[in-house]
Design a binder for these strands. Structure first.
Length: 882
RNA sequence: AGGCGCGUAGCUCAGGGGGAGAGCGCUACCUUGACACGGUAGAGGUCACGGGUUCAAAUCCCGUCGUGCCUACCA
């Protein structure tokens, strides 16, 4: 125990680093595979190595840490599994930028060297976010940190790939994929962001081959006409019935292409005639397949036009569009242009406009996997919370499309497939094959594509635990207890982990999925670099301290609603942290000479019994709230209790005991104070770990870290309902006197005299026993307790139930103010009574409402009646005096 | 186009069939021996609008308006 007085203001910087080292150094974050305790496990949503801590991470990890610390204190063997993901495209982009600065590029240095450089980059910068997570106080088991590209996880990736391929759940094929010409790779459908853009609908005339006239098509992408292989119309469309079997001439290239009939075409849109470009549009691709059309790809992977684009070869796709339009205009084939707004796909990494391209790629056949993942949630094996996200999950799973998993980049898990240069055989294997099993050729070349990063992330809950080996970790901690994440990766990640976990480990990856909100700015806007409205969590940590920040995030973590974060809000909770600090400071100052605590009911004051009962109730509420992922309710309950019950009332009342010359009284108060403070910091610890450890360590008669102390159980304290009622009475009387002082503007230095008129003997007893609290807290000179007297002269009166508190104000009473005060009170009560009286006058209410409700209303009317009567008497007396 | 959510005190939001709540802000007073990152008191709301169910609706249902987000291959 340290004896010197605590600083007046809490200084987070000094405290945070010290305790984090202490926790980590003492292995307090470590999980065990040999423990009798029940397991509790969470896998971290792996931040990507290019990232820096943002608000989303801060919230996500704060919530996970709250759960982990709470569970540890409740006696669980907790594994919080940390790690990072390799973020294929993003990381490759970062390193490529570096190369560009040095005047080179990856093609010049070659694949092998490039991958080496990425590993070097990762070694230097990839751990940054991990240190930032530590600053947040995250209690991950860092000894188990994993990386999606490390050896074990790579082995899991190969195992999964090969098994899915063998089960015919991975296939390779030519399909239209989303191509990012800047990142130079295919993207999965999910990685495409659709954005509404102002554009034009161009009406282009395709001359009929065998007669005069045109067939006019409407398109948003005139440049793709170079790859057209047909024009389609609806077979039901009367306008075009006579075109059966005919051809039109493709403008510019003057090539005949057939008119085909397909129900897919919407008669109402445009002209009802649709140009078909099977190599550059997913729908056209389908139509093309149905009609065995040729697929002509006219755009290169860098977005330029290729040799099949004839005169436009070498132009960029956007330039080509302009040139074609010019040419169409001059040849009279451009009928008209209409403004048109429609959704255009963009790369989620670099925002470049996506080019749908025909390309050979690897796909996962997700249908069968998705079915099982849906069933698991339907059967309640995994709960998705809040439950409205379940619907979103089903909706997506039921409409799922095959997943394009190959990426044309170098950084990632290279696809374990080899092509035999001799016979063309495709070999998929965990280890590199020496010879072709079919033709025995040794000339094999490995697939150059790598896998989508999410492919490895999908294995995270079991690959990090050692799968495919049957490890103790897997046996102890799988399925994990809960996954905490944002809805933005529900499809990207959660759904895929569900599919893979069920398929490969034969059980769901998590029991609960808790979906938390997005963090937005004060205006409710998404934070983004381009908007410049980012609040940097690291700056917040510096300015306000980790605990203040974590507490703010907890209070704002309301289920199902995005949070608006502002600095004022954080400053407000910084004040709360300081309040905790000062409450502890006061307590510890008075505990220097204390003995080990014990609760001797016989000697407890009303305040003691009350606060000991309240903290038990609060412990129970907080437990319920955390168990239900109601972080905001849990944090608010802490706030209200600590500030408005512990500090506002208990500390003030305990001062009388602690400053008492009666040693026994002081000792009792010290006992209660120790138990109370110990309970408070333990309740708060999951939310604000640093300050609570600091206080815990200074608290007499505690040992070890608060991290491993028992979370408060209601049974540690008292359950004394009478004390609650008695305190309500006491607080009501004190509040009444304060109210009059405030309203009447009685200077604080002016001690006033009070007469309390109380009939009930029990109530009288309570007040008499606690007179010293009233005099001190209401700053009163003296109190007389009487029964059934006339209202004293020059008094202001507060009516509390059937108790009247007369404040004697000789020479200070402003009659007009007092009259107004009472009148206002009367009006308020009358309004309330009206409502209740009407209810009682209603036969239906009396007969149909539940009896306890009716009783309540009757009781309320009776109480209000008494109060009203007294108020009216007081008013009359006052007017007579006037 | 569908789906989900939101509209409650000046601001940010809890609550969710029977007495309108919190934080911040605001007003007045207070250098009280834990804390001015503090204390005491106070002002402030036909709970978006219109219907319906009910003895009773801010709360449940339907509709309207406003607003946000997600999903989607109509060129």
């Amino acid at each position: 125990m340290e004896n010197h007085v605590l600083a007046k203001t809490y200084e987070p910087k000094e405290v945070e680093e010290k305790w984090y080292y202490y926790w980590e150094g003492n292995d307090l974050f470590k999980a065990s595979t040999k423990s009798d305790k029940p397991p509790f496990s969470i896998v971290i949503p792996p931040p990507n190595i290019t990232g820096s801590l943002h608000m989303g991470h801060a919230l996500n990890n704060t919530l996970q840490d709250i759960l982990c610390r709470y569970k540890r204190m409740n006696g669980y063997n907790v594994l919080w599994q940390p790690g990072t993901d390799h973020a294929g495209i993003a990381t490759q982009n970062v390193v490529e930028k570096d190369l560009a600065l040095k005047g080179t590029d990856r093609h010049q240095i070659g694949r092998e060297r490039f991958v080496e450089l990425v590993w070097e980059w990762r070694g230097k910068f990839g751990g940054m976010i991990i240190n930032q997570l530590k600053r947040l106080g995250s209690s991950c088991d860092w000894s188990r940190e994993r990386f999606t590209m490390d050896e074990g996880l790579s082995r899991a990736v190969r195992e999964v790939f090969v098994r899915l391929y063998d089960e015919n759940l991975i296939y390779q094929g030519d399909y239209i994929i989303n191509w990012c010409p800047r990142c130079h790779t295919a993207l999965a459908d999910l990685e495409v962001e659709h954005e509404d853009m102002d554009s034009f609908l161009y009406y282009i005339r395709y001359p009929l081959e065998d007669r005069q006239g045109y067939l006019t098509v409407a398109t948003t992408r005139p440049e793709t006409l170079l790859g057209d292989t047909a024009v389609a119309v609806n077979p039901e469309d009367e306008r075009y019935k006579d075109l059966s079997g005919s051809y039109v001439l493709l403008p510019v290239l003057n090539k005949p292409i057939p008119v085909i009939f397909d129900r897919y075409v919407d008669k109402e849109f445009g002209t009802g005639a649709l140009k078909i470009t099977p190599a550059h549009d997913p729908n056209d691709f389908e139509v093309g397949n149905a009609h065995q059309l040729e697929r002509i790809r006219v755009i290169n992977e860098d977005g330029s036009m290729n040799e099949l684009a004839g005169p436009y070869q070498g132009m960029d796709r956007f330039e080509c569009r302009e040139r074609i339009l010019d040419d169409l205009k001059s040849s009279g084939l451009l009928e008209k242009i209409e403004p048109y707004r429609h959704a255009v796909g963009h790369c989620y990494r670099c925002k470049t406009m996506i080019e749908p391209l025909l390309s050979k790629q690897w796909f996962v056949r997700v249908g069968p996997l998705a079915d099982k993942a849906v069933t698991a949630v339907k059967d309640g094996k995994t709960r998705i919370l809040p439950s409205n996200w379940e619907g979103v999950y089903y909706e997506w799973m039921n409409n799922i499309r095959d997943w394009c998993i190959s990426r044309q980049i170098w950084w990632g898990h290279r696809i374990p497939a080899w092509y035999c240069q001799g016979c063309g055989e495709v070999i998929v294997a965990k280890e590199e094959p020496r010879v072709c099993p079919s033709c025995k050729s040794k000339n094999l070349r490995q697939e150059t594509d790598v896998l989508d990063t999410w492919f490895s992330s999908a294995l995270w809950p079991f690959s990090t635990l050692g799968w495919p080996d049957s490890t103790d970790e897997l046996k102890t901690f799988y399925p994990t207890s809960v996954l905490v994440t944002g809805f933005d990766i529900l499809f990207f990640w959660v759904a895929r982990m569900m599919m893979m976990g069920i398929h490969f480990v034969e059980d769901v990856p998590f029991r609960d999925v808790y979906i938390h909100a997005l963090v937005k700015d004060e205006q409710g806007q998404k934070m983004s670099k381009s908007k410049g409205n980012i609040i940097d969590p690291l700056e917040v940590l510096d300015r306000f301290g980790t605990d203040a920040f974590r507490f703010t995030l907890s209070v704002l973590a309301i289920q199902g609603r995005d949070m608006r974060l502002s600095e004022e809000r954080i400053a407000g909770y910084r004040n709360f942290i300081n309040k905790i600090w000062n409450a502890a400071r006061f307590s510890l100052m008075n505990l220097r000479d204390c003995r080990p605590p014990s609760l001797d009911n016989g000697n407890l004051t009303l305040a003691d019994r009350w606060i000991m009962t309240r903290i038990g109730q609060v412990a129970e509420q907080i437990t319920q709230h955390i168990d239900g992922y109601k972080f905001n309710d849990a944090a608010s309950t802490c706030y209200q209790f600590v500030w408005h019950e512990f500090c506002d009332w208990y500390v003030e009342m305990a001062k009388l005991e602690l400053y008492s010359r009666d040693r026994k009284r002081r000792e009792v108060a010290q006992s209660v104070m120790q138990i109370l403070l110990s309970g408070v910091v333990r309740l708060l610890h999951p939310f604000v770990p640093f300050i609570t450890e600091e206080i815990w360590q200074r608290l007499p008669h505690t040992d070890g870290s608060i991290m491993v102390a028992q979370f408060p159980q209601p049974t540690e304290f008292l359950s004394d309902d009478e004390s609650i009622k008695e305190m309500d009475l006491l607080r009501g009387v004190i509040a009444g006197i304060r109210n009059i002082r405030g309203e009447m503007n009685i200077p604080p230095r002016r001690d006033v005299r009070i007469v309390i008129d109380v009939k009930g003997s029990r109530e009288r007893q309570i007040l008499e026993d606690n007179l010293h609290y009233i005099t001190t807290l209401a700053k009163v000179e003296s109190i007389d307790i009487v029964s059934g007297i006339e209202k004293p002269d020059s008094s202001a009166t507060y009516v509390f139930g059937d108790i009247q508190v007369h404040v004697l104000l000789k020479g200070l009473l402003n009659y007009e103010d007092e009259r107004k005060r009472i009148y206002k009170e009367i009006k308020k009560i009358e309004r309330e009574m009206d409502v209740s009286r009407k209810k009682l006058a209603n036969k239906d209410f009396l007969s149909q409402a539940p009896p306890p409700i009716v009783e309540d209303v009757k009781e309320k009317v009776a109480l209000m009646g008494v109060k009203l009567e007294k108020l009216n008497q007081n008013l009359t007396t006052l007017e007579e005096l006037k």
